[in-house]
Nucleic acid binder design. Sequence first.
DNA 1: GTCAAATAATTCAACCACTAAACAATTTCC
DNA 2: GGAAATTGTTTAGTGGTTGAATTATTTGAC
Lengths: 406, 406
Amino acid sequence: MRAHNLALVLHTVANSTDPPSRAAVATATGLTRATVSALVDDLVAGGLLVEVDPPPRTGAGRPAVGLTLTSAGPAGLGLEINVDYLAACVVDLTGAVRHRHVERADQRPADPAQALAALGRLAATARHAAEADGLIVAGAALAVPGLVAGGVVRVAPNLGWQDVDAVAALRAVPELAGLPITVDNEANLAALGELRVTGGPPPTGTAAPTAQAIAAAAPGVTAPAGAAPDPAAAAAGDLPIPGHPWDRRSFLYISGEIGIGAGLVIDGELYRGVRGWSGEIGHVTVYPDGRPCRCGARGCLEQYAGQEALARDEQLAAAALGIALSAVVNLLDVPVIVLGGAYAPIFGSLRDGIEAELRRRVLTAGLAPVTLRPAALGPDAAMRGAADTIIRAVREDPAAWLRRLS
Amino acid sequence: MRAHNLALVLHTVANSTDPPSRAAVATATGLTRATVSALVDDLVAGGLLVEVDPPPRTGAGRPAVGLTLTSAGPAGLGLEINVDYLAACVVDLTGAVRHRHVERADQRPADPAQALAALGRLAATARHAAEADGLIVAGAALAVPGLVAGGVVRVAPNLGWQDVDAVAALRAVPELAGLPITVDNEANLAALGELRVTGGPPPTGTAAPTAQAIAAAAPGVTAPAGAAPDPAAAAAGDLPIPGHPWDRRSFLYISGEIGIGAGLVIDGELYRGVRGWSGEIGHVTVYPDGRPCRCGARGCLEQYAGQEALARDEQLAAAALGIALSAVVNLLDVPVIVLGGAYAPIFGSLRDGIEAELRRRVLTAGLAPVTLRPAALGPDAAMRGAADTIIRAVREDPAAWLRRLS
DNA sequence: GTCAAATAATTCAACCACTAAACAATTTCC
DNA sequence: GGAAATTGTTTAGTGGTTGAATTATTTGAC
């Protein structure tokens, strides 16, 4: 119960726009001021929260002391191996990127051990830099473009990997000793990265609006007015995302790389699938008797909207994407689709073609909108999402972190 | 916390094969015998559990007194409106069907008010019969073949309904006064019905096996050996379902009626979609330029595997189903697909055709099996699932039920 | 400048629910 | 018949919460 309430308080502070006072947290959570005080004391002592200067005064009374997440506590180490680069970043508890290093180099000629060794070096320097900066790296997560099971990369076709125990390789790096390390699919983690940047606070208390209310409000397929990413806002890391509040916490993220992956986020939670293999949208059938795919099937989406096909014909790609995405929406009732990876920069030219298919093929298109939007994060999404899994674990179970310190 | 532990104890008793003692519940839950005693006393006083004769002795020591769910307490009223019948059933806390009445009649000529009035009469007699039998009807749920939003049936094409406030109509029936009433999609509820019958207990304590372990064990698409439903076992309501334990709690249920719907159950939870409109697999595109569908699109699954098409060509239906289901598995990594409705009786002739497509088009088919199986429940599935939502609510929050009594 | 009103945070007694350990009840086994 | 075993209850103790009272610090009125 204490663990639950610690998490509740931490989330409330994290999701507030300006530093809330203990009293504000109490009213927001429904707990007593006394209880909140006790919990906050623990979180401050444990180095997860810090007291900051009071927010601008608002009337009579004793001035409040503000609370924010620390920028000197636990941090997450995000790693990525992709076809043409290695990358590492450190993200602190507030979600700020504190270190970032990308090493461009084609990984396909390298064998897995070489690539992982190079990544290990990147990770080691990132950890050093972070700890010199007062951060405590709480764990590392690695994004790879392939199917992952139990820490092992089963298949990563575009890297040419098969049954590579990436976790074991990283654990062997001496500078990473003692760190919990996980591996996950690139698209899944990119979806989490997108969520961290655009997700915003969970709908506090109020339930999602009824479908009834939605349908009355805005029929048809829609996209935000200024759909192209606003560079200034994106740089500030605080993109204003239009739409209904739950649009920001439930979406399908499509990652268009050489292959095509997807990450499904439902109400702020990533759905990984029973065995961790969800999101293989690249091999959804679009044209049953179409082009042969290297997976052995015919007419896979990847053959029409993968990077190769994309270079040849963007409109064909858009139509194929539209067909596959219609299936997703019909099956899962996802209100928002985020186009990432190679799709983000050409969102403008894909949008109409995708929307045309959605309008035609989504059964509920007339009842409620399906919103299309470009990804906010660019090529860093997966690495950022990987780091986010670490700080998310601390945020969701601060009690464990406090125990770990003592 | 008390609420949580009450639910924990209730679940433990519910999921035990024979009536457990207080001590057995204590060891199973990890709570103290003292705590369990206190909780059980509350549940017995509230009429959710009853003490029964001790199970056969097993050694020395004071004899235990067994605990079971009551068969005289809260009950769920399950209702269904479909194209050619109305139905009502009452299910008690143990999951036993205590009353059941089906009224065959084509509902299409009737206007919604007439149909709902007839259903109201059915529901009223069911409630009476149940209460004469010592049951307390805790609520009612209605299954309809259509899109539902906030208690309103937005569209039910095969009934010819549009924007029918079914909940309001039923609430107006005097004999149903005071009952919480909900409406839901037929396929969603049928999936829950299937879960109740085949789901079994949640994997106690142990996590799902790693994908790694699975892949090593059994590659390829598989189906249970004796795949046709065993009538004797089905009648006993205790069908032995083969496969891994989590297979029973994560599956996609396909309901083949005039239209085709699907209900997705993940780890024992029904996924309804953000707006409640998930599972419209009937309008997933199979052949992008194929037959025109009444939804306005082309090549929808319904045109190739709906009841009409099914009558013409079962093999075409199987191939189309295989293509659409491959998309589902690629996207969601669902390990089991349950064929219900009109598909269940002809499972044998559909199976090979579906499996061929799955083998070809599911990317991970070589890593882990996709199991196909016929539904266990037959035409009662949706109605049973509807009733189950009511008793599930009581089971998941027994504290609320106890409060309600006082 | 002083005092009342307002707001923030802490302290303290009471309470609820769980744990641990002792105890009572009832059986089997020797 | 008595020791051992097992179930279920009782009792004292503890952690974490609430609610009320208390302290701290500011604004605004006079």
